[in-house]
Design a protein around this nucleic acid. Sequence first.
DNA 1: GGAGGCCTCGGAAGG
DNA 2: CGAGGCCTCC
Length: 796
Amino acid sequence: MSEYLQELNEAQSDAVVQTEGPIMIIAGAGSGKTRVLTYRIAHLLNNGVDAFQILALTFTNKAAREMKERINKVAGAEAKNLWMGTFHSVFAKILRIEADKIGFPTNFTIYDSDDSKSLMRDILKEQSLDDKTYKPSVVLNRISNAKNNLYNWQQYAHNPEVQSEDKSTGRPLTATLFEMYSKRCFNASAMDFDDILYYTWKLFQEHPEVLYKYQNKFKYIMVDEFQDTNYVQYVIVRKLSAQHENICVVGDDAQSIYAFRGANIQNILNFEKDYPELRTFKLEQNYRSTKVIVQAANSIIAKNKNQLKKDVWTDNHFGEKIKVIKSLSDNEEGNMVANSIFQEKMNHQLHNKDFAILYRTNAQSRSMEEALRRLNIPYRVYGGTSFYNRKEIKDLLAYFRLAINPSDEEAVKRIINYPTRGIGKTTLDKLVSTAVNEGKSLWETLCNVETGSTQLNSGTRDKISAFATMVKSWQIMLPTYNAYDLAHHISGACGLLTELYADRTPEGISHYENVQELLNGIKEFCDSGDVPLEVPSAEIAENGIRTLDLYLQDIALLTDADKDKDDDDNKVMLMTIHSAKGLEFMNVYVVGMEEALFPSQLALNSRTELEEERRLFYVAVTRAERKLTLSYAVSRYKWGNLINSAPSRFLEEIDEECLELINTVPKARTYNDDDTRSSWGGENNFGMKQRYTNQNGIQKKTETPKNSTPPKPSGIPAGFKKVTNAQPASNAGNSDFVADEPSKIQVGMNVNHQRFGNGQVISIEGRFPDSKAIILFEQEGQKQLLLKFAKLKILN
DNA sequence: GGAGGCCTCGGAAGG
DNA sequence: CGAGGCCTCC
């Protein structure tokens, strides 16, 4: 037996050597799941399996990258030949190869969620549907669910059950919107994220010869985080593995936290039914955390009814008890956590990177950041606006997208008039409407603007043609230029670089720098020999040139932290619990342990949702290696309102002997009178009667007189809140303001303007009705106003 | 055409 | 409170 097997425990090594047949690995938190997966692949390679025949699917780019690195260490160069990547990236790659079978060009665009939303917004507007009833996000969600459950728009429209659901929710036209959305994407040669999965399924379903090809290619298939797969992903994996049935899935039902977006724990249960010969391995020894933490985690998850039986244990030290700290406000909570980190660092000679602060919602990072900054503790916030989400980056990428696929409607709409080219909203609306009516792409319509049916004047037609000519010239350059040369050319030719350079404000400079950084990234892409992660280099058609379309494919499915390169890694990590999944830290602080925050207000109504919150808490607790601190505040600001909060029920659910209460002195509490919906009574450890509060005790705005300050928690000094809505003009809020006839305004008059206040007319230029007045306002200084718009009142 | 005020609304998140 | 979409005004 190979020596690497010595490094594994019995269950781990059983799972590694069982290479044939369907197997499922249920891996408890911290039980060495990634290690098993990597060694399993190494084992396959050692036993003579060709790397080209192995497919490993993950959920995140990060997970894929990490695993590839680790396999590289264990298995060496051969690892390069694996197919390893996210579901989306691997399937997108297959779809590009087989695109013609499903009627798409190989250069199809991948719409991100902003593109999808913007397209849906347009469709709703064109249909004059009220976007309150038909919220784009709600409609898109519905469509997404449909596709993830293998419905296309035709099937959706003809399913009576689905139709009656849409009727009862007041959105009977959803099917039509689904149809329009699908057709618009198709005409734009674009797929959204769900389409990548749906069309892959369709490809395999309708083209058995294609399915057969990939079935034979992938003799060994592995799926990580199996508990997070949705139905379409499951079905595709099943299809792909049907020939050899060497399928290995790894997951932990206790860590399923994405059910809200369609992940289905049921897949784990179905798996047993679909593969009667399934062999299951349980990894139950935890190598990460102390005994206290493992015991606490077990006691939490035991409260869930829905789960597979598992007994996670550890040989590690008992460790310190879990601290529970209480504070009066969110700001105080930040200070207490920051102070605690400061002291721990001092007392135990620890690094910043040994600490993580985890929270339920991103908004909670603010108070933590402020407190850390006060103590000069370096930190890094995960999530937030990512590099690729910045406007200037998306703008430039839209130009690149056009060079590759000019049918890309969302890209056209985004930049056809940025920088401005005199092709305004009205023109664009006309073009889109012609395209939709004729069932053509927007690009085709604007290329035919001279002969087509769109009614436009010749000046506008010229501007559109000039734009089209520019894009066409890039199309011609695409195959013969490397990515950097073309990207550089485009960013200059389109005028974006000049536009951004002209803005010398600090923000403007940073926009320009971001674009430069993107270009640097492309240069790196060209210089490095790196091939896209998920596909072996031998699979890529080599003409030697690393073209812009290759680059775009490489980044289209990248998101968030993928781009963030930070030279200094020694920082306290701040992130949501969701994004902490799969990570581990020596010291973990879970903050905001309060009812209606964690568990979330929206999860309080159903057992399933509450259980998902509880699994989320389980994930949070099991991130900690040595020390865990849980913290809650009795009041915090939410959307500008102060709310009272009760300690989370989850605190109560932890095995008591694991806890050490720091400053949670029992204290009497008052509740709103109308707070009677108690379904959970009794005193808890924290000396409080736990109840569901009405709106979680949000103090209703209407009950507060306008000028009174809201009650403050004692942690916040009075006068800390900045004054808003200071009105410069004396007549602000005066609804009976009546402007005088503009023609009466004369030089020298004293006038009043609703926004600018009082001023004197210095001069008037031009002839009425286009005359402009220069007015010197007392507060606002000199302004030039067009008289027909200005709404001025003459003062005596 | 574009800047800025007004209004609305708010969940966590992968690709 | 803050972000983002929409609308108004110049």
